[in-house]
């Protein structure tokens, strides 16, 4: 991140940066293990367009994968995850620093079609909860059925965990989950997860 040539990256503070030590210390290993960490500053872009219109195909080409049309599904490429948020709304998640590139590509894809591309990277931070016990930790505060018969890798959901609205994205079958939560709720959610992992 640069402004007029000055690097500003070292000035950034992630919502949970001050908790990194506590999150790392809460790691439990073994068959009932669970790990918790923050993945700060992920690029997040909110994309809205008509899924049946010409811009959808162009956006798919720009992203390198078709936009997921099934409710609560995720399409992953080598460096992006495209999450279904609504019938005409997606969240494109990429690596730290990738937002301007993705935004430019999506704006070109959208062209003059009705829709929007908004960089919402600063809206949320990401908590990653993984390990064999991750699901039982999450189930203490989430009413969704997270059992593999109903939820799994490649699925996402907007729901509440411990009453906090978030986007839940299952990364793999270990299981690993990403919880994309608003910055102002992140401390509360991290405290709740730390408490839940201790049970």
């Amino acid at each position: 991140m640069t402004v007029d040539g000055f690097a500003l990256a070292h000035l950034r503070r992630s919502p949970l940066g001050h908790l990194a030590d506590r999150l790392a210390a809460a790691e439990a290993t073994g068959p009932g293990g669970v790990r918790l960490r923050e993945i700060p500053f992920l690029a997040q872009l909110n994309l809205r367009l008509d899924p049946a219109g010409p811009a959808a195909a162009r956006a798919a080409e720009a992203l390198g994968a078709p936009l997921p049309t099934l409710a609560g599904s995720v399409v992953a490429t080598a460096d992006l995850r495209v999450l279904w948020l609504g019938p005409d709304e997606w969240l494109v998640v990429g690596a730290d620093g990738a937002a301007p590139t993705i935004e430019h590509a999506l704006r070109r894809a959208l062209g003059d079609e009705p829709g929007s591309v908004v960089d919402v990277s600063a809206n949320r931070t990401t908590l990653e909860l993984s390990g064999p016990s991750a699901r039982s930790v999450l189930e203490q505060g989430c009413s969704l059925d997270l059992h593999p018969r109903a939820f799994g890798p490649g699925r996402c959901a907007q729901t509440t965990v411990a009453k906090v609205q978030l986007v839940l994205d299952q990364i793999d079958a270990e299981p690993s989950y990403r919880l994309l939560v608003r910055g102002s709720f992140a401390q509360y959610l991290a405290d709740w997860l730390l408490d839940a992992t201790g049970e």
Binding site: A71, G72, P87, S143, A157, Q158, T159, T160
Partner: peptide, 11 residues
Amino acid sequence: PWCGERDETEY
């Protein structure tokens, strides 16, 4: 109609 069954508190 899109997300399936959810608790009333989400609505």
